[in-house]
Amino acid sequence: MSLDLTTHLIHHPYEPEPGFAAPQPAVHKASTVFFRNTAAMRGADRRRKHVYSYGLHGTPTTFLLEERLAALEGGEHCVLVPSGLAAITLVSLALLAQGDEVLVPDNAYDPNKAFSAETLARWGIGCQLYDPMDPDDLASRIGPRTRLVWLEAPGSVTMEFPDLTALAAVCRARGVPSALDNTWGAGLAFQPFEAGVDLSVHALTKYPSGGGDVLMGSVVTRDAALHARVKAMRASLGLGVGVNDVETVLRSLPSMDLRYRAQDRNARALTDWLARRPEIVQVLHPARPDSPGHAHWQALCGPEGLAAGLFSVVFDARYGTAQVDAFCDALKLFKLGYSWGGPVSLVVPYDIASMRDPAVTDWPHGGVLVRLSLGFEAVADLRADLEQALQVLGSA
């Protein structure tokens, strides 16, 4: 067939020779996916693990990242979604229906608490908060309507490390699926499924990306039935990820362990220094013996285990919110911003009392809490930055 030049540019017969190999995998961008014939088109069941039907449901590039993330966390199945919060809400929507109930730890990531207590309530789904440091409290709250329990290790912002194995065992004994927000552990500090959880949710925005420039999340499980429900809900919601973002995460994964360890090492150096400062009454970091749940962290992660580059400090009660805000504003290397795991150190002040239910858990500290996330700046420079900002704190 003789083709017009314009048509020839679209339907040129050249195809790459097989066998090409390079350090970085190929990037397959597609909305439309071609089928060999009508039989292949009619038989494309996207519920199967690796079937190409439409770009929204997966390409070789997205499937490759899913496989690597499943391996990282010790799972067998993975789906990608546009953010860590999307991964959380996807699990809840996939497993809950009208009349059901979800249990959420009182120290959980606040958007998860808000979605569970407010958005799900509009659809007739109940929500209870529980004390994550008390497995008996969790056990007492699980009832006949409970269809999902959220876990978090450590707690968002306040960094308490629960007895994750005991909490997961409570859920398993009652036949209720447990879902862990494993963004902090990242598959490196501990293996979530060895601890007994059923699903692991991961904000790839943090350590897997490592650049502070990608929004993405994942849901990993070993349970094929749970995976099928999550994958079906993802398809129903039309959730997909940009392949350029997938490429960025794939490029970052090989250095993830090195980056995690470097930020962990720097965090321990700074927390040791901050713990000696008179302005600070508590340093919250799971590797510190005086941090809540340290023994649980040690049991799960090992005596020489990893503890990430994230920690919080509680200021002496003599410093009010305005003074602590002045401290944060005075920092030069630490930037005010949410998220963590990237190259730039971050700081965020929190009003913890407003984030807790006193009927569920007690926040014993009266002082203002500030969370710090370490980037890759030199420890000496970060310490000098904190020291000059503490001088401002005293004079504010």
Rank of each mutant, 00 (worst) to 15 (best):
S2Y: 04
L5F: 06
T6S: 12
T7C: 03
I10P: 01
H12K: 04
E17F: 03
P18G: 03
F20G: 04
A22T: 11
A26N: 10
A26C: 03
F35R: 03
F35A: 10
A39Q: 09
A44P: 06
D45Y: 00
Y54E: 14
H57I: 02
H57R: 04
G58M: 08
T59Q: 00
T59C: 00
P60H: 02
L65N: 06
A70Y: 01
L72N: 08
L72V: 05
G74A: 12
G75Q: 12
V79L: 07
V81S: 07
S83E: 07
A86R: 04
I88V: 15
V91A: 13
L93D: 15
A94H: 05
A94E: 13
Q98D: 13
D100L: 01
E101M: 10
N107L: 10
Y109S: 07
A117I: 01
R122N: 10
L129T: 07
P132W: 00
P132L: 10
D134T: 05
P135V: 05
P135E: 09
S140Y: 00
P144D: 15
R145N: 12
P154I: 08
S156I: 04
T158S: 14
L164K: 07
A169E: 14
V170E: 11
R172P: 05
R174H: 09
G175M: 12
V176I: 11
S178L: 10
T183K: 02
A186D: 15
G187S: 09
Q191W: 00
Q191Y: 01
F193N: 09
G196T: 12
S200Y: 02
V201Y: 01
H202G: 00
L204E: 04
K206I: 08
S209F: 06
S209W: 04
D213F: 00
V214Y: 03
S218M: 06
R222H: 08
R222F: 04
A228R: 15
R229D: 10
V230R: 02
V230H: 04
A232D: 15
A232V: 07
R234N: 11
G238D: 13
G242M: 12
S252G: 13
L253M: 10
S255E: 15
R259W: 03
Q263P: 07
T271F: 05
W273P: 02
R276K: 14
R277Q: 15
P278A: 07
I280F: 02
V281C: 12
G293I: 08
H296Y: 08
H296Q: 12
L300P: 05
G302D: 11
E304A: 06
L306Y: 01
F311C: 08
F311E: 11
D316L: 00
A322I: 03
Q323M: 05
A326K: 06
A326Q: 09
A330D: 13
K332D: 15
L333M: 13
K335E: 15
L336G: 09
G337T: 02
P343M: 09
V344Q: 15
V344G: 02
S345T: 09
L346D: 06
M355N: 07
A359L: 13
V360F: 03
W363S: 13
H365P: 01
G366T: 11
G367L: 11
V368A: 11
V370W: 02
L372E: 06
S373E: 15
F376W: 01
A378Y: 00
A380K: 10
L386Q: 03
Q388W: 00
L390N: 03
